[in-house]
């Protein structure tokens, strides 16, 4: 129980640290006036004065920090000046489901494919299948996601769009699930795959390394001495034990993506998620929006990591007892 409390305390500490870090990056960098940044380009002196007062830029840094946190998480009335006073927080909440759809689908693909690839490579260790799969994984890691998206668009939207292969792919953009489930699905398939490619590479390679290392463990030898089939040994003893590492990795990446790491994919495919919101803010130098998305995503990542720790308890009995 004390351990749980300590973990919670740690999480709070990291949350505080993250918020200070993000705040610092945006509003406490040396040699720059944050007022001008918030106001955006070509702001009038009156607006500058109003902002300075509203955000307390004429007061000490801790007060500024407190005001910012209040605006972000309590009153949620942080407004974008570049975008005619649009409230930022509701905008993020509106964009979040799109990002969630994108990331969840991609996660499903990358988890299933990488488990299949990693397990197969480990089972056929040393053969050309193993080497081929791992090289494929390495290629996946080496492709910039935005470029892969562009190429996917080129192929599915233009070059081969009129053939039977890709005629089902709709134009870029997002169709809400409530509007048309099939349109939602067809519009997201290509983005899902593009986003998943890199993670398939990472995860299959990690899993393969893990499984190969486990093969030398005593308990794998025991399992063989028990007369179990190779498939059962690999899946029930090897893979199940590897899942402990797999899940911790997954929790981290999933949280980072939901928190805005999918920005490039969203931009390339015109999906109106949190990432594209950030991107639009980048082009207009709309600092409040960027800061808010970064802050929210960081908070999300920290909370997700705490959640992974809880999942760990179910996966690894050793950790369960250590607390």
């Amino acid at each position: 129980m004390t351990a749980v409390l300590r973990r919670a305390g740690q999480t709070l500490l990291v949350l505080l640290g993250v918020s200070v870090l993000v705040f610092g990056v945006f509003f406490a960098t040396p040699g720059a006036d944050p007022t001008a940044r918030i106001a955006g380009r070509n702001a009038s002196p009156q607006i500058m004065e109003k902002i300075r007062h509203e955000y307390g830029f004429d007061r000490p840094l801790p007060v500024q920090y407190a005001i910012m946190m209040k605006k972000l998480f309590i009153t949620r009335d942080l407004a974008s000046y570049a975008d005619r006073g649009e409230l930022v927080v509701p905008e993020i909440l509106q964009a979040a489901p799109v990002t969630a759809c994108l990331v969840c689908g991609a996660a499903f693909i990358w988890v299933t494919v990488s488990i299949a690839m990693g397990t197969m490579a480990a089972a056929m260790k040393g053969t050309w299948v193993d080497r081929g799969l791992m090289m494929l994984g390495l290629v996946g890691i080496s492709i910039p996601v935005f470029w892969l998206g562009e190429v996917a668009n080129l192929v599915t939207q233009s070059r081969y769009h009129d053939t039977w292969l890709f005629s089902w792919v709709p134009g870029l953009g997002y169709v809400p699930f409530s509007q048309s489930p099939s349109g939602w699905f067809r519009g997201l398939v290509i983005p899902w795959i593009v986003l998943a490619v890199m993670f398939i590479g990472i995860y299959s390679r990690v899993l393969r390394t893990d499984l190969v290392a486990l093969a030398g463990e005593d308990f794998m030898r025991t399992a063989r001495a028990k007369g179990l089939s190779p498939v059962r040994i690999l899946l029930w003893h090897g893979l199940r034990t590897s899942m402990v590492t797999f899940v911790s990795l997954f929790g981290m990446d999933f949280a980072q993506l939901v928190g805005g790491g999918a920005l490039l994919t969203e931009v390339v495919f015109g999906l109106p998620g949190v990432g594209r919101l950030t991107y639009r803010a980048l082009t207009t130098l709309d600092l409040p929006v960027i800061m808010a998305t970064v802050m929210y995503s960081a908070v999300f990542v920290v909370l997700a990591n705490a959640a992974v720790d809880v999942i760990y308890l179910f996966l690894d009995p050793r950790v369960r007892d250590a607390r």
Binding site: G17, P30, A32, G261, L263, L264, L282, V294, A298, V301
Partner: peptide, 28 residues
């Protein structure tokens, strides 16, 4: 802890945040 905190911010978002601040005006 400091590393944990930095790593909690998605890498690309962190880089973007720093860039937007540094690219928007020169720093002294």
């Amino acid at each position: 802890r400091l590393m944990d905190i930095m790593w909690a911010v998605p890498v690309y978002l962190f880089a973007i945040s720093l860039s937007i601040v540094m690219v928007s005006q020169q720093m002294r």
